[in-house]
Computed example of a mutant assay.
Amino acid sequence: MLIIHGGYWRTKYDASLGELLAADLAARGIHAYNLEYRRGAGSAKHMLHDARAALAHVTQAGPITVIGHSAGGHLGCLLAAAEPRVSQVISQAGLLDLELAQELGLSDDAVQLMLGDTPLSEVNPVGQWPFKARVVIFHGKDDEDVPPVMAQSATRAALSSGQEHHTQYFEGDHYTWIDPATTQWQACVEQLAPWHFGGK
């Protein structure tokens, strides 16, 4: 398992956001890696390199699932497109359509800040589909940070491209996904069976 935190690619948000999720997975007997990656202005040209370097440290055999929250869902999809070792991406309120995010000006135009001089088309998750990994698109109905229209747009893109996917909406806001006590997190854990713990 790889966990990739969100935070709209800003440096003030770090891998501490994923610590509780990694601990929960470890308690379930799953090898969990909590990734850090370069963020901030122009970070689009660095973040995939960092994620691929992290993946190279995963030596266990078997399927690999990436769980990405918000901007982490974005990077998780880029990693899956580049690395066929990734079996599944679980996007928790993920920024999967950068064109839409830019159009909406989400988080004070965070997309443009992250891109720098990198063309949007090179790092837009929906533009990488279809790839081998399955994509689970989870989103909260009350999410004001990444509105549900993001999941709706991503689902349309998955259908039109033939990307294997599963979409589901839940009650809750943007942050319920990273609390291991919530039903939203339990839904993520259920997507790991039977690959990671035999359907238990």
Rank of each mutant, 00 (worst) to 15 (best):
L100F: 11
R52F: 01
V136Q: 13
A23R: 14
G140K: 05
D14W: 08
D179K: 04
H139S: 15
A101H: 14
F170H: 08
M47A: 15
A151P: 14
Q168C: 12
V58N: 04
E122K: 08
P180E: 04
P148N: 05
V123N: 01
K45H: 08
A181P: 14
Q191N: 13
E99M: 09
K132W: 02
R52K: 12
L25W: 12
L17D: 07
I64S: 07
E164D: 12
W177R: 06
P125N: 01
A32S: 01
A15T: 10
Q152P: 00
Q191L: 14
L78K: 01
P147I: 11
A80V: 07
V123C: 08
L48R: 06
K12F: 06
Q152G: 14
G42C: 03
D143H: 14
W9G: 06
H74Q: 15
L21C: 02
P148F: 02
H5T: 04
I4T: 11
A133F: 00
K45C: 09
G76V: 04
L48M: 09
R134E: 11
L120W: 07
K45L: 05
L55F: 04
A44H: 13
A23H: 09
L20E: 14
M150L: 13
D143T: 12
H166P: 01
S160Y: 06
R52M: 12
I67D: 00
V146Q: 03
S16Y: 09
F138L: 10
A82L: 03
R28C: 04
K200F: 15
Q168S: 14
S87F: 03
G18D: 04
D143A: 12
Q60R: 15
A133R: 03
I178A: 05
Y175K: 11
G42Y: 10
D142G: 08
A187R: 01
L17N: 00
H69M: 08
G162H: 06
A51K: 00
P84F: 08
V149Q: 15
E83D: 14
Y169F: 11
T155F: 00
L55S: 05
T176M: 10
G18E: 05
L2S: 00
I137R: 05
E171A: 15
G62C: 06
R134W: 10
Q128Y: 03
G172Y: 03
L79A: 13
L159K: 12
E122D: 12
A53N: 02
A181C: 05
F131Q: 01
H139P: 15
